[in-house]
């Protein structure tokens, strides 16, 4: 493997993703954990760009950084009790570490078995891939059902969360 200029952004983004992920689990301060999560998600968006999945990258930043990271942060902020916690209250970390390691090994083995250790270059992405995506989303033989189910699912999620939040308020 010879050095290529693309390695620099790749390793930078990989470092953001992994470092952010590590920060989430080891930081004592919950807000710091949320900010590390945002960093990790940003790194993911960068990796999507490197894979030329630009729409997914945009959606990643918009939904995960712009909405979910913010939601997590303010959830920590509105629940005052969580703010003061700086000690990890959990003594199960050896078991958790073991399980994470096992999951990691399983995923690596499955991925290497499925795609092979040497990666083949994929077919070039069509130039107008977003139009294609849009056409397929609204096509009866394409992804019409997932498209509509997604909207119904989101409606259900909204109703559910409002009901739960209302019970908490009363």
């Amino acid at each position: 493997m010879t050095f290529s200029i693309i390695w620099i952004p790749f390793f930078l983004m990989a470092a953001f993703t992994i470092g952010g992920g590590l920060g989430v689990v080891i930081s004592r301060n919950l807000i710091h954990a949320a900010l590390f999560l945002a960093l990790s998600l940003f790194g993911m968006a960068g990796l999507f760009v490197l894979l030329e999945a630009t729409f997914i990258a945009g959606a990643q930043v918009l939904v995960y950084l712009g909405a979910i990271a913010v939601l997590i942060t303010i959830t920590i902020m509105v629940t005052r009790r969580l703010m003061g916690i700086t000690e990890t209250v959990n003594r199960q970390w050896p078991i958790a570490a073991l399980i994470s390691l096992l999951v990691f090994i399983t995923l690596t083995v499955v991925n290497v078995n499925a795609f092979g250790a040497v990666l083949e270059p994929v077919a070039p992405v069509p130039a107008d891939d977003i139009t294609l995506l849009g056409l397929l989303l609204a096509d009866a033989e394409g992804y019409f059902v997932p498209f509509e189910v997604a909207s119904v699912l989101l409606l259900a999620a909204l109703i559910g969360s409002i009901v739960v939040a209302r019970e908490a308020r009363e």
């Binding site: 729409f55 945009g58 959606a59 930043v61 918009l62 950084l65 712009g66 909405a67 107008d128 977003i130």
Partner: peptide, 13 residues
């Protein structure tokens, strides 16, 4: 090719 999406994405930062 995702210009408009890019604009709302970065401004949400």
């Amino acid at each position: 090719s995702v210009g408009a999406l890019y604009f709302v994405a970065v401004s949400s930062l």
